[in-house]
Design a protein around this nucleic acid. Structure first.
Length: 420
DNA sequence: CGTCCACAGGAATCCCTGGGTT
DNA sequence: AACCCAGGGATTCCTGTGGACG
């Protein structure tokens, strides 16, 4: 069967050596920051005019940036960072400016945010603040000292800032917006980025006014603007533009425009469509590939969410799935908890309390895996949430059975019924 | 109109982890 | 070795509530 000098890899490697469509998919990734940001000149200028005061050694106003996902907020913030650094390095008339970027979805605790700001100024590895262990006041003091030592203006970008405030009370923001009162030789200004338009409502008034000295709103891209973005990237990413069916870019743009003008989604569609076309050894990317890409992306995202669920959430989801497969498509919290409890006992895992499970149900709801709506059935039924699946139970079951812990119990029900 | 069901969901507390300091 | 500290998950205890039933 297998010939000498050939391995099972060869067919795939051979396919790779054929003329491919994509030259470098890196340019289609959302995290790639291009040199030009189409249709964002206006906003960039606005931001630049605010930040230019920093280059003169004055503290720029704090800025709050609002905008849905994929409207270029992060790209613009990083782009500005590059430009600021370039200016400081090349023009000695420009005053010292430190520009640092923190994603609050990654570091989402008070400690983490303060520590990573301070660590930005750490010169050696032993100056690094450990990611846990120190008391808060010590972290804050080191941060203050280092910013003071660094002199000049420090611009701190806090991306997805709502993620942090959502979990904590926002004390860090209070400290950071007030830190200037305690600094003599340095100044700090904050750029907050959020996709939650109601974000400020959750802030204390004193923080709200400080942080929102300037508000900038990033509007969604319309289909035409998305097309311009995709065209720019396609030139970089594909060998030959004629490999793209003329209707492909407009279609990707139109689909993404439907979803609140998300550039990230548009790029994903184009990239995945290209990858699918390559895998089929097709010489062209067509509309059909885009539609396939759309389905694939949606399914992949959903499955990845399930895979990364903590164990008890998986068991909980499995209970809902099993009930659904038996025709019970509307369940109450109590019913679900019973099944969950059974499954846990079967798997010799100690079950969580119902209180905890109500929280996990809310989480699954927010993830879009299920919908849980509050309903009251009056006396005898009480007030509970009715839980429905918003994804395919069969598909969910399949993904759940990939888990080693759960494989033992996914068949629990069918084995039971076989016994009787 | 009051009762009462079956929970929702807030608050305080505990436990554990990963790290620090003394 | 003994103890401090932040943070996340979980538990315990609790009060609140929409609406069918009587």
């Amino acid at each position: 069967m297998v010939q000498e000098n050939t391995t099972i890899f060869d067919p795939f490697l051979e396919a790779q050596s054929k003329p491919l469509l994509i030259k470098d998919r890196h340019f289609l990734r959302p995290e790639y920051i291009p040199d030009k940001l189409p249709h964002r000149d206006q906003l960039l200028n606005q931001l630049a005019s605010i930040l230019s005061t920093a280059l003169r050694g004055e503290r720029p106003s704090n800025i709050l940036i609002f905008g849905k996902t994929g409207t270029g907020k992060t790209a613009c913030a990083k782009f500005l960072g590059k430009e600021v650094r370039r200016k400081v390095e090349t023009d000695d008339r420009a005053k010292k400016v430190n520009y640092l970027y923190i994603n609050c979805k990654v570091v989402d605790t008070e400690y983490g945010i303060l520590a990573s700001i301070a660590n930005h100024f750490a010169k050696t590895s032993d100056e690094q603040i450990p990611f846990t262990g120190w008391p808060m006041d010590k972290v804050y003091k080191t941060l203050k000292d280092r910013v003071e030592d660094a002199r000049g203006v420090t611009v701190i970008v806090l991306d997805e800032i709502d993620q942090y405030v959502f979990k904590s009370n926002g004390d860090v923001l209070y400290h950071l917006t007030n830190i200037n009162d305690e600094l003599k030789n340095a100044k700090v200004s904050i750029i907050g980025i959020t996709n939650d338009s109601k974000f400020t409502e959750r802030l204390e008034t004193r923080v709200k006014t400080r942080l929102g000295e300037e508000n900038i709103i990033f509007p969604p891209y319309d289909a035409h603007e998305l097309q311009d973005i995709l065209k720019d990237r396609a030139v970089l990413a594909f060998f030959d533009q004629s490999a793209l069916d003329p209707s492909v870019i407009p279609l990707c743009s139109a689909l993404a425009a439907q979803e609140h003008g998300d550039a990230r989604r548009a790029l994903d569609l184009l990239r995945v469509a290209g990858e699918l076309a390559e895998r089929e050894n097709s010489s062209k990317v067509t509309e059909r590939h885009v539609h396939k890409a759309k389905n694939k992306i949606e399914l992949d995202v959903q499955n990845e969410v399930i895979r990364s669920l903590p164990m008890h959430s998986k068991i909980l989801l499995l209970s809902i799935v099993l009930e659904n497969l038996e025709g019970q498509t509307q369940l109450t919290t109590g019913e679900v908890y019973q099944v969950y409890y059974e499954l846990c006992r079967f798997a010799r895992i100690s079950p969580l309390t119902q209180r905890r499970i109500t929280d996990l149900i809310s989480e699954l709801d927010m993830l879009g895996i299920i919908t849980a709506t509050l309903k009251s059935f009056g006396r005898g039924g009480g007030r509970t949430r009715i839980i429905r699946m918003s994804i395919s139970p069969t598909e969910a079951r399949h993904i759940l059975s990939e888990d080693d812990e759960l494989r033992r119990i996914v068949d629990y029900r069918s084995r039971q019924t076989k016994l009787f």
